[in-house]
């Protein structure tokens, strides 16, 4: 089948190979670096099950779940961003636009500050906050259809509104704010297998949903009228895909806190490399999302060791300048 030009196919193959290599490299580097040095030999022996000392515990119960949680967080955020950028036909869209960040932030902050003894409620509270906020934004913006500009404006307005509540919390409970800083910046510190289990179902759902949705995303990018002309039930598809994106981002922030820039930048870079066809953009974004968070978290652990930075801080250090670069590029063209 001559469905694609050779150069396209070659580029995808190359990108896929490089991606998998980076993923493997990131995984190994992340496993062996840290306060406890684990050699490649130790790693091999531990995975083979012949070495079961203290290092085994460090690797299997501390580093591995943290790496896997980080990878899934990256996958979910990147998928969420890729979906939203296509649905909103805006390459600068990210999960924050549908209120995930503001909603999760406010709910999680409320729990951390008002109920400091119930920190185990932070993930579900963030999750619910994110979903409720994105639903509210969707219905505020809906008027005979969900138009991207109205969605974006409603998202900005509601984020500012919820942000005001968060500012109130920081002022009124300034003594308790300290405990929220890590979460607000996005951190993978202390993630265990419980967190892997928490996020895994959404990663699976997201990969399936976005995989099926890719064809519809491609058609939505032709504009609502053309899409409807091609028999797509535009409003239903947009709603389902937006909610899938919200769900993915909600699951990620409920585990790792407000990790920004992944959902914005990963699909954007991926698009620059392999083009706007969502059948490829979606899976490649997922892989790159995992890679970027693994590398960023490794850097967060080791750059100022023994102190740890929240991974979100590293993402912002790298992501913000890159975002400005993308903006200047797009405004020039």
């Amino acid at each position: 089948m001559r469905e694609f030009t050779d150069s396209d196919a070659k580029r995808r193959l190359m990108t896929g190979a490089v991606g998998l290599m980076l993923l493997a490299t990131g995984f190994i580097v992340s496993v062996i670096t840290g306060t406890v040095d684990i050699s490649l030999g130790d790693m091999a022996r531990i995975f083979a099950g012949v070495q079961t000392d203290g290092m085994y515990h460090v690797l299997m119960n501390i580093r591995l779940p943290r790496i896997i949680t980080g990878a899934f967080v990256g996958v979910n955020l990147a998928l969420s961003g890729a979906i939203l950028q296509a649905v909103l036909k805006n390459p600068l869209a990210d999960p924050g636009i549908v209120g995930v960040t503001a909603g999760a932030g406010l709910f999680a902050m409320a729990v951390m500050i008002l109920l400091p003894s119930l920190t185990h409620l932070v993930p579900p509270a963030a999750f619910i906050g994110a979903l409720v906020t994105s639903l509210v934004i969707y219905f505020l913006a809906y008027e005979g259809g969900a138009h991207s500009l109205r969605l974006i404006l409603a998202g900005v307005a509601l984020a500012a509104f919820l942000g005001a509540f968060m500012s109130c919390f920081t002022v009124l409970y300034s003594d308790r704010v300290q405990g929220t800083v890590n979460w607000m910046a996005g951190s993978l510190s202390g993630k265990s297998w419980i967190h892997v289990k928490m996020i895994l179902p959404y990663t699976i759902l997201g990969l399936f949903g976005a995989g099926i949705g890719a064809r519809y995303l491609n058609i939505l990018m032709l504009g609502d009228d053309v899409a409807r002309g091609l028999g797509v039930s535009v409003e239903r598809v947009k709603f389902l895909l937006t909610m899938l994106a919200a769900l993915l981002a909600a699951s990620a922030v409920s585990v790792a806190g407000l990790l920004g820039f992944v959902g914005l930048i990963v699909p954007h870079i991926t698009r620059l490399i392999i083009g706007s066809d969502n059948r490829f953009l979606i899976p490649f974004s997922a892989v790159f999302g995992g890679i970027i968070v693994i590398f960023a978290d490794t850097a967060a652990r080791v750059v100022f060791a023994p102190y740890e930075l929240p991974v979100g801080v590293v993402m912002a250090f790298v992501g913000a300048p890159f975002f400005l670069y993308l903006l200047s590029r797009s405004s020039r063209s």
């Binding site: 990018m221 032709l222 504009g223």
Partner: peptide, 9 residues
């Protein structure tokens, strides 16, 4: 149906 000047990537 083709709308007036449709747009695509």
């Amino acid at each position: 149906i083709l709308p007036q000047s449709p747009n695509a990537p």
